[in-house]
Amino acid sequence: MKKLDKLEKHLGFLAVPNVVMSLIVAQLIIYAAMLTGRVEFEALLLIPKAVYAGEWWRLFSFLITPPYVPASPFQAIFLAFFWYILWMMSQALEAQWGIFRLNLFLLTCVLFATAGAFLGQLIAPTGTIYIAPRFLYYSLFLAFATLNPNIQFLVMFVIPVKVKWMAWILVGFACISLLAMPTIGHRIAFIAPYLSYLIFFKGNLRDSLTSRQRRAKFESERRQTLDAPLHSCVQCDANEKTHPERDFRYKSVDNDMVCICNICRESTSSE
């Protein structure tokens, strides 16, 4: 993160506070325009073919489209709740990261998404790739879950679930969606925005992997210690696990305490 610190030192004044709230307000305005029939949802999405045809505004307008268009007032309630959760997570990330890093994280997500869309369209020219701003929400959610894994959300307002498990469920569904996509171009466009997450959290992911490996090694050594016999005869290698009926005693041999079972002691005595 030293590079980010240097970048923030020189460009921090460009950061926009509450940038996610600004996006939410813009999406509310667009949603109101959709309800009145003045704007169509598909007319704002990032579609590389449409941009090639001269609809350059799609390079920016896709960021202010709502995540989806509710079909009923009941679904509109969930949309409002979705926006609230998005705002809450952005506030937490802004407090943990600072304004500049959150801005930079969102900006890199957008740049990767745009580049991925055009690269994907180039690879799959016969298909039509379109990008909605859902990747921003999912990227923010993954970032929030990585930094605050044990915070609980109430699923259906009843069931408490830690955010880290919700993140794994999201990743699982994303993998299924990725496999179901028709072309490699679509897959590239889908994956590209999340490169920003990998860049920002590569240190966290590496530390998490190292920590898991250390815990696994410690657990393996602990089990080996528990499974290892406490007493082992130096003459016949019998121990209390392989021969529980034997009696093991210690004696001093050349100033060293050695273990001998009763069978070997009796054999030595008879000799």
Rank of each mutant, 00 (worst) to 15 (best):
D5A: 15
L44E: 03
M166R: 01
W97L: 08
Y137G: 05
Q91L: 14
Y84I: 01
E219G: 02
T108L: 15
G116C: 07
L111H: 07
V69S: 07
H243P: 01
S208H: 14
F112L: 08
L14Q: 04
C264M: 07
Q75P: 01
A15L: 07
M88K: 15
K164Q: 11
E42A: 10
P193D: 12
F60R: 08
T108K: 04
F201G: 02
W57V: 00
I184K: 10
R246D: 02
A180S: 15
F78E: 10
L205E: 11
V253S: 11
I99T: 12
G172K: 07
L79P: 04
L93H: 06
P133C: 08
Q224S: 11
I123Q: 11
S267Q: 10
V161A: 11
L7H: 10
K251D: 11
T36V: 00
S232Y: 11
N18R: 11
V171N: 04
A180T: 06
M1R: 12
I123K: 09
F153G: 01
L28M: 14
F74L: 10
Q235R: 11
P48Q: 06
Y84V: 01
S232L: 13
F41E: 09
V39Q: 09
L205F: 13
F218R: 13
R222A: 14
R223Y: 12
V163W: 05
A95W: 09
F135I: 02
K217V: 03
F81M: 12
I24D: 03
I169G: 10
V69Y: 13
R134C: 07
S220R: 10
L63E: 09
C259S: 09
N262H: 12
L44S: 02
V20F: 04
L136V: 04
R249T: 05
L140Q: 07
P48R: 03
A143C: 01
R246L: 13
I263W: 06
N103L: 03
D207R: 12
M34R: 08
F112W: 09
N239R: 08
N150V: 00
V258F: 06
F81A: 14
A192W: 11
I184S: 12
Y137L: 13
S211G: 14
L104P: 00
A145M: 03
L226V: 04
R212H: 13
F112Y: 09
S61E: 05
F141E: 02
K9W: 14
K162D: 03
A53G: 07
N262G: 03
R249I: 01
R246S: 03
R249S: 11
V39Y: 12
W83K: 02
L142T: 01
L195N: 12
E240Y: 10
A95C: 03
W57G: 09
A174M: 10
A216R: 15
S211P: 00
P149T: 00
I77R: 14
H231N: 15
F135V: 01
A192N: 10
D5K: 15
D237F: 13
Y197T: 00
Q152F: 04
C264G: 02
L147Y: 06
L14S: 06
Y250I: 01
A95Q: 12
L195S: 13
A174D: 05
I199A: 15
N148S: 08
F153H: 07
Y138N: 11
L104S: 05
A113L: 06
V258E: 09
S139C: 08
F190Y: 15
R38L: 11
E245A: 10
Y68S: 06
F248K: 05
L86R: 04
L86V: 02
A76W: 07
L154S: 11
Y68E: 08
R265Q: 02
L79M: 14
